[in-house]
Amino acid sequence: MLSARGLGFRFGSITALEAVDVDLWPGEVLAVVGESGSGKTTLLHVLAGRLRPDAGQVWYREPDGPRTEVHAMPLPLLRRLHRSDWGFVEQDPRQALRMDVSAGGNVGERLMAAGARHYGRIRAEAARWLAEVEIDVARIDDRPTTFSGGMLQRLQIARTLVTEPRLVFMDEPTGGLDVSVQARLLDLIRTLVRRLGIAVVLVTHDLAVARLLAARIVVMQRGRVVEDGLTDQVLDDPRHPYTQLLVSSVLAT
């Protein structure tokens, strides 16, 4: 459903992406791993149409529609895609949430942007999604400023999934959370993604997260894809020296 060929991106003299090819199939979870500065997040932003690549193209195929080039799409179309069929989960939920709007309003925003105009139904849907992400429904009118870090991230996930997107981009969704909260969040993401059949591009530096969620994995180093394949295969039998280093550094702990 999403495929990229020959992506290149530079920040001035720094090469963030070079000759990157990516393919994503419907319902598949693809993890992008690598150390800080390896171009993971840049790749995510380019795939999502937020950054225009210096070289290469990204193609998206609608369920029964033609293939369209993401960066050639008119802005209104790309926006519509971003608030209906696509979702983006930021590492810092404060960037995505409206902190001065109640939890219910945050979850309902995408519905209202898509044209929902019935308060009762919007609220019921928001309550249902709060329950899905294990936030107490009694807190529907509380502002996110009163929520803990883990709750904020779960709220962001509810807000993103409420329109049942086909494709979600996730940037370190478990970053900055403590281990027990991470585990519950991962479990939640895995359950929801499986049930709704969402395709996910997941950026993470944590190989355990990749192993738990992703079927396929792409290993990046200095803007290049150094290895890709099935998650278990890559992690159990890494071929590239850099992947071997990554895997061994996890096993050491």
Partner: peptide, 18 residues
């Protein structure tokens, strides 16, 4: 320009909720 007015309804939603 894009008639992207969903945010305005969020304000109305907040009013009804509160």
């Amino acid at each position: 320009a894009l008639a992207d007015y969903g945010a305005m309804h969020v304000r109305l939603y907040e009013q009804v909720a509160r």
